[in-house]
Amino acid sequence: MPEVAVTIGSALAFARGRIPASEARMFLCRLLGIGAAQVAAYPERNLAAEQAAHYAAWLERRAAGEPMAYILGEREFYGRSFQVGPAVLIPRPETELIVDLVRARIRAGSAPRILDLGTGSGALAVTLALEIPDALVTAVDLSPAALDVARGNAARLGATARFIVSDWFSAVDATAFDFIVSNPPYIADADPHLKEGDVRFEPRTALASGPAGLDDLRRIALDALSFLVPGGWLLMEHGYDQAAVVRDLLVSSGFQEVASAMDLAGIERTSYGRRP
């Protein structure tokens, strides 16, 4: 930014045409510890030199395409703020559907055992532990760095869960779970969207899964029955056009009561089945 006194108004003007105005306002809200209404009401307010430097650096990173969640270090999920970074996938609103589906299947007074496969930031595991206080939650991820983020989120939000480094079920003990949930990689390896937008900066191992994006979904569906109690549920998020094939995977793997649920956009986003 120019080597002159920086005000809210000049900071917003400097960002114009480079990033959306709403994102520039978010940066200023964070730096100044004020709300959007105050940003709009006091364009003459000065930024300290350190604040202006942070703002300029953040603006450059965002203009280069880096996700807002990574720059600010957090993203909201199910009404809570989760810390995120390049080691983990950015939580998305559609994944909240899994939490709703699990909650709808909880028996009153039960203490369900829940396994979250590929926990990443811990968004699902931590949320389920907080929304279902009696639940016994186990979260696994192949990435130790991702598990560090998940553990940090659990500690900061006051959730109790067990975290294990594991390639899906490989290091999971013989515990039988009432629910297995997962938001696994489900994008095809050659999908051009992997080179666009925020996903360019997210860990590829959390996004892509084989020629059709089905490798990990298939692996989970095939192995999950051995880790579920009779009557236990497997719930998996998948791509916008994968519901039918995932239902087929669940049926062929031996699941019953197989169905798909729509997210708020009307897309079949999560498919599930029950162990007989």
Rank of each mutant, 00 (worst) to 15 (best):
A49M: 09
L31I: 14
N46K: 15
A53R: 13
E50A: 14
A53D: 14
E44Q: 15
G65T: 11
A52D: 02
A56K: 12
G65Y: 01
Q51Y: 07
F27V: 10
E76A: 08
R75Q: 15
L59R: 10
P67E: 01
L32P: 02
E74D: 07
I34F: 00
A69I: 04
I34A: 12
G65W: 07
A41G: 06
A69C: 08
R30V: 12
L72K: 10
A57S: 14
G33F: 00
F27E: 05
Q38I: 05
A37N: 09
A53W: 00
L59V: 11
R45S: 05
V39E: 04
G35T: 04
N46M: 09
G73D: 05
G33Y: 01
F27Y: 03
I34K: 11
Y42L: 06
G33E: 02
Y70T: 09
A63W: 08
R75K: 15
A49N: 06
A48G: 14
A36N: 11
Q38N: 09
A57R: 15
Q51G: 07
E44L: 02
W58D: 12
P43V: 05
C29M: 14
Y70F: 08
A53P: 05
R25D: 00
R30D: 12
Y55D: 02
Y70W: 04
L47F: 07
C29P: 04
G35E: 07
I34Q: 15
G73Y: 09
L59H: 02
E76Q: 05
Y42M: 09
H54S: 14
L32T: 02
N46A: 12
A52Q: 01
R61M: 11
Y70A: 13
A40K: 15
E74K: 09
A48R: 14
L72W: 07
A41L: 11
L28G: 00
A56Q: 15
